[in-house]
Amino acid sequence: MKYCAIASGSNGNCYYVAKDDSAILIDAGINSKHIHLRMYNLGLLPTQIKAIFITHEHSDHIRGLSVFAKKYNLPVYITKGSYDGTRLHLPAHLVHIISHDEVVEIGGLKVYGIPKYHDAKEPCSFLVSDGTYNIGVLTDIGRPCENVQHVIQHSDVLLLESNYDEEMLRTGRYSYFLKNRISSGWGHLSNRVAVELFNAYKTDRLKHLILTHLSGENNTVDLVQQTFEPHCERIQLHVATRYQETELFDLKLVLENPVTSFSIPSALSS
């Protein structure tokens, strides 16, 4: 399996998972032009994508969906609540309404819907499996629930939200309403809650952790790295930034080389 974050952050999210000739996107939250550019940077062809799975209707998860899906005639798997919330009018043959705990097979991949808490109409996260290895993609988590805990326990690779630093949010310029929305249990996971969740439910099978969906206003890469690095002694750690795609990871290589040093360009650390 191969995987990466094409885009990750409060300004847009798009994640790629592939097995042989079957590739999917989870969310399409940057515009179609930038999806193409970032895929090109990684040597990926848009024609390799077989389907798009949408977690929920917020703009940072669907901004490029309509143009990209229609250009390549891609099926879009989405809950009814999320699709109604998008207010998009995709061609009917592209829209595949799923329940938020459904299992969908795309080539050699099984994609499991994971119900979660978030302030959207019918949101879900996803776990992608090839029958042997599992990749969990958990963003926009208002608060941990048993579904989220279960994914962490069964993931070989985990893309986990670490959205905000609590002190930065508390003292920052956001309105009271927005601060409360983010931290209410229906918004996002703070660095503190995310690392507590990670430590409580990670298992020995977890080999790679990618921290995702960082706030541009209330978090930094350095803070996230400092929070998680002490807890990743035998786990590869990367932080996906809002500025560029991650590298394309190959799970086979990750399993063969379970720990590498953490590094990130200093220009991207704030």
Rank of each mutant, 00 (worst) to 15 (best):
H100C: 14
S162T: 07
E166C: 12
K207D: 08
N134Q: 08
I135G: 01
I182F: 02
D140Y: 06
S184Q: 10
L127S: 11
S183K: 12
M168R: 14
T79W: 01
I97K: 11
G131M: 04
Y174R: 14
L138Y: 01
T132R: 09
V195Y: 02
G172S: 13
Y83F: 14
N163L: 03
T171V: 13
F126T: 07
V151A: 12
R192F: 11
S190F: 05
D101K: 10
G108S: 02
H96S: 05
E105H: 05
R87I: 10
R170F: 03
Y164H: 04
L90K: 13
L158T: 10
H208P: 01
S125D: 12
L197G: 04
S184W: 01
L88C: 10
D84F: 00
K202P: 08
R173L: 10
E161Q: 15
D156T: 09
T203H: 01
D130A: 02
H100Y: 09
H93P: 00
L197K: 03
E146N: 12
I98D: 11
P91M: 11
E102C: 09
H208W: 08
N163T: 14
I98R: 09
L197N: 05
G185M: 13
L109F: 02
E196D: 15
V157P: 06
R87W: 07
Y176P: 00
V111R: 04
G108H: 04
I97C: 14
S155Q: 07
H154Q: 15
S183M: 06
N199G: 13
R181S: 03
N134T: 06
F198K: 02
H188S: 15
W186M: 14
L160H: 07
S162Y: 01
F198L: 07
G131C: 00
I97V: 15
D84H: 04
H208M: 12
W186H: 13
L88P: 06
P115R: 12
Y117I: 10
G185E: 13
C145S: 15
T171F: 07
G85R: 12
S190V: 11
I114H: 00
S183D: 07
E166H: 06
E102W: 00
N134M: 02
S184C: 11
H89L: 14
I98M: 14
V151P: 09
G131D: 03
Y164F: 07
S190G: 13
P115M: 10
E102Y: 08
P91Q: 10
E102Q: 13
I141N: 10
I78K: 08
L189M: 01
G172M: 12
F198M: 00
K179R: 06
H100A: 13
I106G: 03
G136M: 01
F177G: 05
A120I: 04
I141E: 09
S183N: 11
H89W: 10
L127W: 01
V151W: 06
I98Y: 05
E196L: 09
F126Y: 15
L209K: 04
T203R: 03
Y174G: 09
A92K: 15
P144T: 08
V157S: 07
T132P: 03
S175A: 04
T86R: 05
L138H: 01
Y164E: 02
C124S: 10
I210C: 08
G142V: 07
D165G: 09
H89E: 15
H208V: 04
S175F: 02
W186E: 14
